[in-house]
Design a protein around this nucleic acid. Sequence first.
DNA 1: GTCTATATGGGGATAGAC
DNA 2: GTCTATCCCCATATAGAC
Lengths: 207, 207
Amino acid sequence: MRTERSKQSRQEIMRKILDAAIAEFSQHGFQGASTQAIAERAQLKKSQLHYYIEDKEALYAQVLGMVLDSWRSFFVFDSDAKQSPREALSEFVRVKLDYALENPELSRIFTMEVLSGGARLENYWPGAMEATHAKVAKINSWVAEGALRPLDGRLLIMHIWALTQYYSDYTLQAEMLLESPLTAPDVRQKIEQELIQFVLSGAGLRA
Amino acid sequence: MRTERSKQSRQEIMRKILDAAIAEFSQHGFQGASTQAIAERAQLKKSQLHYYIEDKEALYAQVLGMVLDSWRSFFVFDSDAKQSPREALSEFVRVKLDYALENPELSRIFTMEVLSGGARLENYWPGAMEATHAKVAKINSWVAEGALRPLDGRLLIMHIWALTQYYSDYTLQAEMLLESPLTAPDVRQKIEQELIQFVLSGAGLRA
DNA sequence: GTCTATATGGGGATAGAC
DNA sequence: GTCTATCCCCATATAGAC
């Protein structure tokens, strides 16, 4: 009984620590975040926290890994599927945007890491580039077929990235301009519609 | 003579400090940057640095102010001018992109600040919002005239922001995908062309 | 297994030497 | 006017108490 409750409690604590770490790292990056602040957010004392984690570096690696793993599994892009460019691009934008809106903090951790020089992404790039090249090749083939206006697939991917990532990184600015939280269903739907429309139109597809 | 040389030297030192501060703050944000690292980068000892600056907060304020001032003066957008939508949008994208490519570190400082919660931007938002609303109104009037496809001017501005800012914030990713530094003239020109094309097309303007 | 007391270094900043 | 010696605090991390 005692052991049972204790184990359960430990899981809860670990969950709290992880949430706290996500919040702090996403705001201040690896260097800027303090284990102190993470501990407080998880309702622990700093010295307690250090019992539950290996060290700051490992905790960060775990959190950063969560983002990278999510993205790896989400953005498969169905390279083989025989979707139309319109369907495929819409779907890609929608999935990436949904992730940005639903996991803004995790998304920001990646941005912070890139801004900080990306030293902890070394192992990540090869896989990411491979996955991206597949998407780029698909886009370029659509261009060759005349399904899209002439453009460089790499830039289209980069631009979609930029546009979707904006909604997690610049939530502050966006909410100020829209005078509403991005989580409001009507705002969210409007963003999704307009963004998809913007990308499709930008790629040379009619409404 | 002595005084003269000394004064000159001080200016040079201040310049070095500022450059160092820009580099460090842009990588690690306010919290993450250390006066130690700034001092070293400026070839000073930490204790020396603290003679030349008021404190870390003031140094940061100065650097952040540089970005905000640049943007205030650059993006006037000629609200009154009778440019065509095509000309006005192209010009806006070009100017903002040029700034991102030429001052990536300064641009990143703003992004880092927003990611960190933007506490030090409180005084900045009102002016920025005012300037932005003027642009938005102009865009919306073009939509009303049928010069642009139906869209929300606020979102178009946000999207242009996202796209241009990407080239400073995600330089790392972009250079990896393009397999070239963004400073290479041919790459730079290609980005400018494609980005402007993407925005114009996305806003419903033909090539 | 959990937490506390404590070590050690680096953080920002200053009083006072030159 | 410039720089050094030094302060004090907070950072991360751990050895050992419970």
